[in-house]
């Protein structure tokens, strides 16, 4: 569904992504793991059109996206939940959700959007309780739900999630990840999940890619990556040396 081939992205003269290729099949959850500064967020922002690649191809269902502006890419069906949530803090929860539908808002779709909002509220009842509250006053977990709900309002085919677990308490992280699986089913989404929390991300994913200093160094099914010793050492916190010593 999404195909990325030989993507090069430069920041000034430094490359942040070098010859990155990956693909997503329809209905998959694909995890993109890697440490800080590996280029994960850059990759998502390039897909969303916020950053222009130096060369390479990004195509969604055969359509080239590299020339399109971010506004057009949203309309093609790609929504991003940015790192750090980026909710509109001084707007109400409801206004935030409504703004998610900006790209398809017109008099004709008004009713459909209303129904859509109700659907989001069904999924996240907490947001309904707080719909008049300012988004900045929500807890971190609620803001994450809001950011996801807002992204879903554009009726995306592909959802890009950037570090949804960042800064959340462990029990909330579990909740967020279980929501992602639910959402994928309910909205028939394809999900590209960027995470530092590799273990939780791989657990709910079908496949995964490992990004290091701007290159894809490993790819495979989620189970394989979870079992891979390099991945375990670098991203899952398993101390192999200590185990050998015992």
């Amino acid at each position: 569904m999404l195909k990325i081939k030989n993507l090069d992205v430069y920041y000034g003269k430094l490359y942040t992504l070098k010859k990155v290729s990956l693909h997503l099949n329809k209905g998959e959850i694909v995890a993109l793991i890697g440490s800080n500064g590996a280029g994960k967020t850059t990759l998502l922002n390039t897909i969303s059109g916020l950053i222009k690649p130096a060369s390479g191809i990004i195509s969604l269902e055969g359509k080239d996206l590299t020339k399109l502006t971010p506004e057009k890419i949203v309309r093609e069906g790609i929504a991003q939940v940015p790192e750090g949530r980026h909710v509109f803090k001084t707007l109400s929860v409801e206004e935030n959700i409504l703004l998610g539908a900006y790209s398809r808002y017109s008099l004709k779709t008004k009713r459909e959007i209303k129904e859509n909002i109700e659907k989001i509220y069904e999924l996240f009842p907490k947001l309904k309780e707080r719909k008049k509250q300012l988004a900045g006053t929500l807890s971190g977990g609620e803001q994450q739900m809001l950011a996801i709900g807002r992204a879903l309002m554009s009726k995306p085919k592909l959802l890009l999630l950037d570090e949804p677990s960042m800064g959340l308490a462990p029990n909330i992280i579990k909740e967020v990840f279980s929501y992602i699986v639910d959402l994928k089913r309910v909205f028939a989404l394809t999900v590209l999940l960027v995470e530092q929390n590799a273990k939780n991300a791989l657990k709910i994913s079908d496949r995964g890619y490992v990004l290091e200093t701007g290159r894809v160094i490993l790819e495979g099914s989620a189970e394989d990556l979870l079992m891979n010793r390099d991945v375990q050492r670098a991203y899952l916190g398993r101390d192999l040396d200590a185990e050998v010593r015992i």
Partner: peptide, 21 residues
């Protein structure tokens, strides 16, 4: 919606662009 979009831009340009504004 246009007015809201203008407010959104003033609050967070990145998020506004991701909403298709």
């Amino acid at each position: 919606m246009t007015g809201r979009a203008m407010k959104a831009c003033s609050l967070d340009v990145k998020a506004a662009r991701l909403m298709g504004i």
